[in-house]
Design a protein around this nucleic acid. Structure first.
Lengths: 240, 240
DNA sequence: CTGTTTGATCTTTTCGAAATTATCGGTATC
DNA sequence: GATACCGATAATTTCGAAAAGATCAAACAG
C-alpha cells in the first residue's frame, strides 16, 4: 500500500490561527480590543467562516474571549490575571523542570545547550534591545521549552506552552519599562548550568525567580496602566 | 443608560459545543472514532459551519483531534494518556485544594456541604448503579468543583475543569470493571470532613488517593483494552 | 429633565452550495 | 506477483450571501 502520501501541511484555518496567535501575543492585536470581522477578513485574506474557526480556537486557548452574541475581543490584560498567571506558571514550570531533570537524557542536554547557544548568538548579532525582536523571542521560547521538554508529560507541556504564550504579552510590557535584560541574560545561563548539573531544587528556585522577577517588574512599573481589570480597551484592530 | 438588556443566552454553536462535549465525555461518541460531518449534521441539527466551529473548540480542549485535512476524530483513550493525565491532575488538584482551604470562607463551606448533600440524596434515590447516571455525574462534578472553588485562581480552576472532564471518559470505563463505589462514597465524606477541618495535608493526600485509585482500577481491569495507544479505533459515530 | 421605547444601521451568526483535497479500486508496468 | 499510477467517488474545507441579533440615536412619555 502506498502509505507515503504527503499528509499535506496546513489547512488555511490553521494557518490563520497561527498568525493570529502571534499577532495577539506580540500585541499587534491589542488587549481588550474588539475583533471585528470585516477588517480581520482583509487583514488575513480569508472568509467569515475561516476567520471564525481561528477565533473559536483562540477562545479555547484563552487568548480571545467570546462575548455571547456580541462578537470577540482580544483577552484583556489585567494585574489580577498577571499575578494569577504567574503563580500557576510557577507551579507548572517547577514540576516540569523537576521531572525533566529526573528523566532527561543526552539529547535533552544537547538541545538545551544548542538553543542557549542560538539565543546567545542571536542576541550578540541584534545588539542592545535584542529583546524587542520577534526572532529572539522565538528562540527564547525554544530555550525555555527545551529545559522542560524531557519531563515526559505531554499534558504538562501543553499546559505550560499555553501559559507561556499568554505570559508573553505581559513580558512585552515588561521590556518597555526599565528592562534589566542584562541580568536576564545572566539568569538564563545560570539556570542552564543548574539544570545541566541536575540540581532540581536550585533549578526550580531559579526558574521561579526568573518568572517572578519579570512579573514584579511589570507590577512595579506598569501596574498603574491596569485600571481595575480592563486596560486600554481603546484602539481597535491595528492595521500595522 | 438602559444597561439591562438581556445579553441573550447561547449562540447555537455554543449549544452544540456543550452537547458534543457531554456526548464525548460520556462516550456516546466513541474514543478514536471518526467524526463525519453528514451524520453529525443530522444528529445535532446544524449546518457544516456551526458544526465545524464546535469541533474546532473541542480540538483546543483536547477532546477532539484534527487530522490535517482529513477531518476530525474523537481523542483516543490510551494507557499512557490516562497515567499522564492522572499525574497532572494530582498536581493541580492538590495545589487548588491547598489554596482553597487557606482562603475559603463560610459560603465556600456551605457550598461543599450543599453539593455533598445533593450528591448523597441523589445516590439514595438512584439506588445501586447510581454512578451510571449522568445526573449523578453532574452533581459529583459539582461537588469536586466546590471543594477547590475558593482557591482564588481562575486559571487553575479552568485547567482543573478541563482535566476533570477529560478524566471523566476514563472514570466511565472504571465503573464498568469491579466498581468499588461503596468505598468511593465513603471517600467523598472523608474528604469533605478533612477539608472542612482545614487540614491541607490530609485533604490533599486523600484527594490524591481518590484520584489515583480510580486510575489504578482502570489500569488493572481495563488496561488490556488499550493496545499501544489507540484503543477501539473501530466503530464510527454511534447513532445512540 | 430623566428614563423608556422604537426603529434604522451595523455586526455577528448561520446556512448550503462550490471548490479543494483525500480515499479507494482498477489498470498497467516492472 | 507486487508496486506505482490514474480516474472516480466521497469526504472535508472554504466561501459569500441571507438571517438573526445587537447597538445607537432620536423621538416620546412620565
Amino acid at each position: 500500500m502506498t502509505d507515503g502520501r504527503k499528509p499535506s501541511g496546513e489547512t488555511r484555518a490553521g494557518d490563520v490561527l497561527q498568525r493570529m496567535r502571534l499577532d495577539i501575543i506580540s500585541c499587534v492585536l491589542k488587549p481588550g480590543s474588539k475583533l471585528r470581522f470585516e477588517p480581520l477578513k482583509d487583514m488575513y485574506a480569508v472568509s467569515f467562516s475561516t476567520l471564525r474557526e481561528a477565533l473559536s480556537r483562540l477562545v479555547a486557548e484563552g487568548l480571545v474571549i467570546a462575548e455571547g452574541q456580541r462578537g470577540f475581543i482580544v483577552a484583556p490584560l489585567s494585574l489580577a490575571d498577571l499575578i494569577d498567571l504567574t503563580d500557576v506558571r510557577v507551579l507548572i514550570e517547577r514540576e516540569a523542570l523537576r521531572l525533566a531533570i529526573e528523566k532527561g537524557d543526552d539529547r535533552w542536554e544537547a538541545e538545551i545547550i544548542g538553543t542557549y547557544h542560538r539565543m546567545d548568538r542571536l542576541q550578540s548579532r541584534l545588539g542592545h534591545e535584542y529583546y524587542l525582536s520577534e526572532d529572539w523571542s522565538k528562540v527564547h521560547g525554544e530555550f525555555h521549552y527545551a529545559l522542560v521538554s524531557a519531563c515526559g508529560s505531554p499534558n504538562l507541556l501543553e499546559i505550560r506552552q499555553k501559559l507561556f504564550e499568554r505570559a508573553h504579552r505581559y513580558r512585552r510590557m515588561s521590556s518597555q519599562f526599565r528592562p534589566k535584560w542584562r541580568e536576564k541574560d545572566v539568569e538564563h545561563r545560570t539556570i542552564m548550568e543548574a539544570v545541566l548539573a541536575r540540581d532540581p531544587k536550585r533549578s526550580s528556585d531559579l526558574i521561579e525567580r526568573h518568572i517572578r522577577e519579570t512579573t514584579e517588574n511589570v507590577v512595579e512599573h506598569a501596574g498603574h496602566l491596569f485600571s481595575g481589570g480592563i486596560p486600554r480597551a481603546g484602539a481597535d484592530v491595528a492595521a500595522e
